[in-house]
Design a protein around this nucleic acid. Structure first.
Lengths: 69, 69
DNA sequence: AACCAATGTTAAAGATATTTGACATTGGCA
DNA sequence: TGCCAATGTCAAATATCTTTAACATTGGTT
C-alpha cells in the first residue's frame, strides 16, 4: 500500500454526494485519476493534491497525510 | 514558472548549512532532485514533499505553497 | 426485468518526476 | 595559485502520474 492516505471519498460524500467525475472536472483531472487516488493506487502530484484540497476548502494536510502502520 | 513555491533553500541554511546532498540523503532522493525543486524546475511528488518537510520538523504546507501571481 | 448513473478496472500512450553519470563554475581555504 | 566542496546543468534512461478509450459491475428506479 502506498504510504499516503486521504479522505477524498468522505469529502465527496459530505459535499452533496459529489461524484468522482464532478470532482475531476473541478480539479482538472479525469474521474479515473480521482478513483485511483481514492483507492491509493498512486498518490497524486503535489499540484493535484493542492487543487483537490481547495475544492473542499481544506488544507492539503487535512486531506492527505502519511499513513503510519 | 511552476505554480508551487517552496523555502527549501532557506531551511537548509537555517539548519546548519545543510548541503543539497545531505538533504537528499535524508529524504532519499539525489542532490539533483533537491536542486531542481529549489529552482522550481519541477514540483516534487507528494511523498517527497512530505519527507522534505519532516526533515525540518515542519508541516508540508509551511514548506510548499501555491504561488499566486 | 430493463435501464441508467456511478464506479471498478485495464491497456496503451503521453507527461512529468527521478536517477545516473558527466562536466562546468564558483567561492573559500591551504 | 591551486585545491576541493558545493552547486549548476545537461542528456539519456527509468519510474511514476495522468489521459483516453473501452468494457464490466453494482445499485437504484421505472
Amino acid at each position: 500500500m502506498l504510504p499516503i492516505a486521504n479522505c477524498v471519498r468522505e469529502l465527496r460524500a459530505e459535499n452533496g454526494d459529489m461524484t468522482q467525475g464532478e470532482l475531476g472536472d473541478l480539479v482538472g483531472v479525469t474521474r479515473q485519476t480521482i478513483a485511483a487516488i481514492e483507492q491509493r493506487r498512486y498518490s497524486p502530484s503535489l499540484e493535484t493534491a493542492f487543487r483537490i484540497a481547495k475544492v473542499f476548502n481544506k488544507s492539503l494536510i487535512e486531506v492527505f497525510w502519511f499513513d503510519e502502520t
